[in-house]
Amino acid sequence: MALRPDYPLLTDRLCLRPFTRGDVDAVCGYRGREDVARYLFDPPLSRDECALAIQQRTVQTTLVEEGDRLVLAVELREDKHLIGEVSLIWRSAEARQGELGWIFDPQFHGRGYATEATNALLDLGFGSADLHRIFARCAARNDPSWRLMERLGMRREAHFRQHALFKGGWDEEFYYAILRDEWLAMRQST
Rank of each mutant, 00 (worst) to 15 (best):
W90H: 10
R38N: 03
G125W: 04
F135G: 14
G153R: 09
D35I: 01
F135W: 14
G112K: 09
T58R: 12
T11I: 12
G125S: 11
E116P: 05
H132I: 03
L121W: 02
R137G: 08
E94Q: 14
T61K: 09
R180F: 01
Q162P: 00
R133M: 06
C50H: 05
R91M: 10
E173A: 08
G127Y: 05
H109M: 10
W146C: 03
L131A: 03
E85G: 08
R180P: 00
L9V: 11
M154C: 09
D25V: 04
Q56S: 13
Y176S: 04
R47H: 13
D181Q: 15
A26F: 09
S128C: 05
R147N: 11
P18A: 09
M149P: 02
K80S: 14
F41N: 09
G127N: 06
G67T: 08
T62K: 14
G168M: 10
F108V: 12
L131P: 01
A53V: 01
D12M: 12
C50G: 03
R47Q: 11
A177C: 08
L184I: 15
D123G: 09
G169P: 00
P106H: 10
R38T: 15
F19S: 06
A95R: 15
D48C: 07
D23E: 11
E85F: 01
T190I: 14
H132M: 08
P8Y: 04
A26M: 09
T61F: 00
Y39D: 02
L45Q: 05
I134E: 02
L88G: 03
D12W: 02
A140L: 12
S189V: 12
G84R: 03
L3C: 13
A140C: 08
Y176L: 04
R133Q: 08
L72A: 10
L14P: 04
R147L: 12
E182N: 09
A114S: 13
G22N: 12
L63S: 03
